[in-house]
Amino acid sequence: MLAPQPLYHIIYHSLATGDGMSPEALAHLLRQARAYNQDHRLTGLLLYAAGTKEFVQVLEGPRDEVTRIYQKIAQDERHKHAFVLHEAPATGRMFPDWRMGFVSTDLKDLHTTGYFPLTSARDYQRPPGLAVHAPEQLRRFLADFATAQATDE
């Protein structure tokens, strides 16, 4: 029997293509993600701000699985400009009970949490991989935001 792999997480940001994601498209995406994650020991959170068409996602689990799914996600045509905000080994899961927690919010709701948009349309001259928020601040924000506002499956 193989020894369990240490935990790893990736936090990435991207922009939805076109007019953004409809509620139906998001529901379909979540069904797919939750089924895949269940089978591959992955957990996480997906945050979608419809006003700015921004995604922020946390993926956590065994490193090879996290890396594999992020590479697949980065090629998905439903979004663009995916870049990693933070990735590292993890001492524990931020979202241990969530195959994929989800928060959809209006931009005005995000402002009440202290969130500010990570990008703007003109901001994409930034080199991919540039961390906009310090990793620990970003991790705390995501955990606090999910605790306060997310509804799990």
Rank of each mutant, 00 (worst) to 15 (best):
S14A: 06
L47C: 03
L110F: 01
V103E: 03
D76P: 02
Y124S: 09
A134C: 05
R122L: 05
V56W: 13
A131M: 06
S104G: 08
A134D: 08
A49N: 11
A25M: 08
L26H: 02
A131Y: 02
L59P: 01
A50Y: 11
K53T: 00
R126I: 07
V84A: 04
G92N: 13
P117A: 07
A88Q: 14
A88E: 08
P96S: 04
T105I: 14
E60A: 12
D97Y: 12
T91P: 00
K80H: 12
Q32P: 00
G18Q: 02
E60S: 11
S22C: 05
R126N: 05
L45R: 13
A143H: 12
R31M: 14
P127F: 07
Q75W: 02
R34C: 15
Q38I: 00
L30H: 14
Y115W: 15
S104K: 09
F95C: 04
H133T: 10
G92Q: 15
A90M: 01
I10C: 04
F95K: 09
E60F: 06
E54R: 08
K72A: 14
H81G: 03
R34F: 15
T105S: 15
L30D: 13
P6F: 06
L47W: 09
W98T: 01
H9D: 04
F95W: 07
P23Y: 02
T52W: 03
H81P: 00
Q32M: 10
L29F: 08
F141A: 04
V56A: 14
P6C: 12
T43A: 14
M21Q: 13
K108Y: 06
Q32E: 13
D106G: 04
G51F: 10
H28L: 11
G101Y: 04
K72T: 15
L30S: 06
F95M: 05
G61Q: 00
S104R: 12
M100C: 07
V84N: 01
I69W: 00
A33I: 01
P6G: 15
Y124I: 10
E54C: 05
E60N: 11
A143L: 13
A82P: 05
H111W: 10
Q57R: 06
A90H: 03
R34Y: 15
D97A: 12
G44E: 11
D106I: 01
L30T: 14
Q75G: 05
T67S: 13
T17Q: 09
A74C: 05
H28N: 13
P23M: 04
H79I: 04
P135E: 05
V132L: 11
L85P: 08
G101N: 11
F102I: 00
H133V: 11
S14P: 03
R34I: 14
L30G: 09
P96I: 01
T17R: 10
P128Y: 02
D19S: 10
Q125V: 06
M21L: 14
G44F: 14
Q137F: 07
L107M: 06
D19A: 12
S22E: 03
Q32C: 10
Q71P: 00
